[in-house]
Design a protein around this nucleic acid. Structure first.
Lengths: 117, 117
DNA sequence: CTCTCTACCTTGTAATGCAAAGTATATAAA
DNA sequence: TTTATATACTTTGCATTACAAGGTAGAGAG
């Protein structure tokens, strides 16, 4: 199992972008986001991280939240991207690619072997 | 020119790992590190970021610094990895790969087109 | 009625990148 | 000599971020 925990310091500034992209692929709510991030390999991001972040993104007019009742539990707050959020999602993708490219440059031809553990 | 500025929040926790890897590829000093990071595409990381980080890494016994006189300017403090630092560099590489894999999953088949604007 | 799963929110803390300012050496220009 | 520039390292304080810990509440199972 290569599922290694990503340190929280490494996620700083990336979670917001990741969430922008996820919401951009279809409106969703906090609790489902928690499961989506886990499924994608970001690890078990706690609710104490996700919900305050969503509220901040709402304050910054990146996302818009609408409450909907659920028949199987408490209300859900569905979020979708605003125009600003869409632009931010695109900007984040570019910045991520820039970072990934720099990291690629860094580890070019000097990666530690992992053939046999 | 696709050289986009990587936001500082996005670098949090990644700079340390990147520096571990660079120093692992051959001992170097702060000022040269500043240029190397720029050349690799990480952007113009200010000295107020690099030097305090090196001092912290030294306190944490990840790197070892040795002063050497220079004939072309002030003394240089050359750093090399400690045993701890080598392990941390390897751990960081794994964690980065985990993060990059999660980001790949995220943008799978749903990237914004850039063919034509 | 209690327990669990779902679903959201708040407060306070530690970690990180950075701006701003300072110190000091070597070299070239005035 | 004086001034300026590139090199080279350090410190203090700030804004941002992920998180732990705790709280609130609805729906269904026992």
């Amino acid at each position: 199992m290569t599922t290694e925990r990503i340190p929280s310091q490494m996620l700083k500034g990336i979670l917001e972008g990741a969430i922008l992209i996820i919401i951009g692929q279809g409106e969703t709510y906090g609790y489902a986001l928690h499961e989506a991030l886990n499924r994608l390999g970001f690890g078990d991001i706690p609710e104490g991280t996700i919900y305050p972040l969503l509220l901040k993104m709402q304050r910054n007019n990146q996302i818009v939240g609408v409450r909907h009742p659920s028949t199987t539990g408490p209300d859900r707050k569905y979020y979708h991207l605003s125009a600003t959020g869409e632009q931010d999602a695109i900007a984040f993708s570019r910045q991520w690619q820039q970072l990934a490219a720099a990291m690629d440059q860094l580890t070019e031809g000097s990666e530690p072997r992992e053939d046999e553990d």
